[in-house]
Computed example of a mutant assay.
Amino acid sequence: MSLKAALEQMGYPCYHMVECFPKGPRHWKLWEQVGNGAPDWDALFEGFTATVDFPACTSYASLAEYYPDAKVVLTVRDPEKWFTSVQSTIFGKEWIEFLPGTEAGAYMKATVDDYFDCRMHDHDHLIRRFNEHVADVRANIDPERLLVFEVADGWQPLCQFLDLPVPEGAFPRINDTEAVQGIIRAIMEEGFQAALGYKG
């Protein structure tokens, strides 16, 4: 979320799970198409010039091929902290058990669950997949297109990579754990449409 906020501050409307979920089932089906090998990237990202995090990050290679002029930012962090974060939010046990029987089940399976072999609570497996993902991006993206970035590095490397001036003010630092937990609770209690407000 910090990188999303930074990119938007720099003028790049940025797609993220928080944009995806409120678009509703018709939009989610576009991600099911991605899982079936028939992506419509232009439809998915209409109105956006950047994307971060899930669900797009698991399709980074296809996206890099489809958008050959796009630059790629690989955010890195301590894998153990990542594991702790996802277990308390998007990979939480109740949420993962809740999703398959919902209208979002197929979309989440295609974009997230399958990428982690549906082993969302297996510590060693998730840490291994995290490290494999980082290694794969490093190996598959041309170094001239790639910035390996830690949020703690701040504006300078990102702005230099994108050839943009450094904005005024501190780099965004967003800890969204509580917000994500709140959205998840609302969806589980009220249902997707009531919690997110999309039209049918």
Rank of each mutant, 00 (worst) to 15 (best):
M1P: 03
A5R: 13
A5D: 05
A6R: 01
A6P: 08
A6K: 00
E8D: 04
E8N: 05
Q9H: 12
M10Q: 06
Y12M: 04
M17N: 11
P22N: 11
G24W: 07
R26P: 11
H27A: 07
W28V: 06
K29S: 13
K29R: 14
W31Q: 03
V34T: 09
V34N: 11
W41F: 11
W41K: 00
D42S: 04
D42Y: 01
L44V: 15
F45L: 13
G47F: 06
F48G: 01
F48V: 01
F48C: 03
V52I: 12
V52P: 04
C57H: 07
C57R: 06
S62R: 10
L63T: 00
A64D: 02
Y66F: 12
P68C: 05
D69G: 11
D69M: 07
D69P: 03
K71Q: 12
L74N: 06
T75N: 03
T75S: 09
V76E: 09
V76F: 10
R77V: 03
R77K: 11
R77Q: 13
P79D: 10
P79R: 15
V86M: 07
Q87V: 09
S88K: 15
I90G: 07
G92A: 14
I96S: 13
E97R: 10
E97Y: 04
L99P: 13
G101R: 05
T102D: 12
A110H: 05
T111F: 02
D113A: 13
Y115N: 02
Y115K: 12
F116N: 08
D117E: 13
M120E: 01
M120D: 00
H121C: 08
D122M: 08
H123D: 14
H123V: 03
D124R: 15
H125P: 05
H133S: 10
H133E: 08
A135M: 08
D136V: 12
R138I: 08
A139F: 00
P143Q: 11
P143M: 09
R145E: 00
R145G: 00
L147A: 02
E150P: 09
V151L: 15
V151G: 14
A152L: 08
W155E: 00
W155G: 04
W155N: 03
L158W: 03
L158A: 06
C159K: 02
C159I: 03
Q160G: 09
F161T: 00
L162V: 05
D163R: 15
D163E: 14
V166K: 14
V166F: 02
P167D: 01
P167A: 04
E168S: 08
E168L: 03
P172K: 08
R173Y: 13
R173F: 13
I174V: 14
N175P: 06
D176Y: 01
D176M: 04
D176P: 00
E178G: 07
A179P: 01
A179H: 11
V180W: 01
Q181A: 12
G182W: 12
A186S: 15
E189T: 15
Q193M: 11
A194S: 11
A194M: 06
A194T: 15
L196C: 12
G197N: 09
Y198K: 10
Y198G: 07
K199V: 13
G200I: 03
G200S: 14
